[in-house]
């Protein structure tokens, strides 16, 4: 951008000029309208972690017995994996919404081009899409937590905070997912998404405690975002809460900040060529 005089308030340097019309709510309403017709897709997303909880908790749990929880009190296997599955489903849902769905709208439906022919800007689009991912993720988390409560897997009132924690986790993954999507060129690149999320789902202490790993592997696992999400959830649902958990919160706040800024800037570069 050479010729035009550009107003340069600090915020406008981080976010694109004219990129925010304050109407991201309209984009969320569009999603709500779409999913009113595709409710099965919404409902099915709720069942995936439930199937895992039931199969692994009930079936495999028979052979696993109890595991040490965050405050070393023994936990049934179901109570151990339930918060892990809650965190993992927050991640998976947010990543799916912000990668596959966004890529399709960006490259194939050219839906964002249509939105940019209206007063909406790229920041509206980024926030609107992330906002919808949060609404959906929030519904799933609420459903899963209710199920946990029914089966007696919540042992502390701190568990009420697991809902906002799930939203925080979903926000972070959606923001980073959307930023990553802006770099994708073809569907083939989505293998990389799988390569990032599947190992986390399997290894970031969702299914077994950190102690099964050797020391160096533990260090690596502790860097993964899903590890922080699982720790956060497991602490809240079992009541093993202390100040150190703010580190986990901080981790996700940083992810959100980086993700949103990159997503908005990259979308700006892609859509406003």
């Amino acid at each position: 951008m050479s010729a035009p005089a550009v107003p340069s308030a600090p915020l406008l340097r981080i976010f694109p000029v004219g990129g925010y019309a304050g109407r991201s709510k309209m984009i969320m309403m569009r999603s709500a309208l779409v999913y009113r017709r595709a409710w099965l897709a919404i409902v099915s997303g709720f069942f995936e972690p439930v199937f895992y909880l039931f199969a692994m908790g009930q079936g495999l749990g028979t052979y696993v017995g109890t595991l040490p929880g965050p405050n070393d009190a023994p936990l049934s296997y179901a109570a151990f994996i339930a918060p892990g599955l809650l965190a993992a489903s927050a991640m998976n849902g947010a990543v799916f919404d912000s990668t596959f769905n966004v890529f399709f709208k960006l490259r194939y439906e050219r839906l964002y081009d249509a939105m940019l022919a209206t007063p909406l800007g790229v920041v509206d689009i980024a926030l609107g899409e992330i906002g919808w991912a949060l609404v959906r993720g929030g519904l799933y988390a609420l459903g899963f937590l209710s199920l946990m409560a029914v089966f007696g897997l919540l042992t502390s009132p701190w568990a009420l905070l697991a809902l906002p924690a799930a939203l925080l986790v979903a926000f972070a993954f959606a923001a980073v997912g959307m930023a990553a999507t802006s770099y994708m060129r073809s569907w083939q690149d989505f293998d990389l998404v799988t390569l990032a999320t599947l190992p986390m789902f399997l290894f970031a202490t969702t299914f077994y405690p950190l102690s099964v790993y050797s020391e160096p592997v533990q260090r690596i696992v502790q860097c993964l975002p899903l590890y922080h999400a699982v720790e956060l959830m497991r602490g809240l649902t079992t009541g093993a809460v202390d100040w150190s958990m703010l580190w986990h919160v901080g981790y996700f706040v940083v992810m959100i900040a980086i993700g949103v800024v990159i997503a908005a800037r990259r979308l700006n570069a892609l859509l406003l060529r």
Binding site: M1, G18, A21, A117, P119
Partner: peptide, 14 residues
């Protein structure tokens, strides 16, 4: 100017 007032302009065009 489209660069400065993009949203305002887009509100009035099709």
């Amino acid at each position: 100017d489209p660069y400065v007032d993009g949203p305002k302009i887009r509100a009035r065009i099709g």
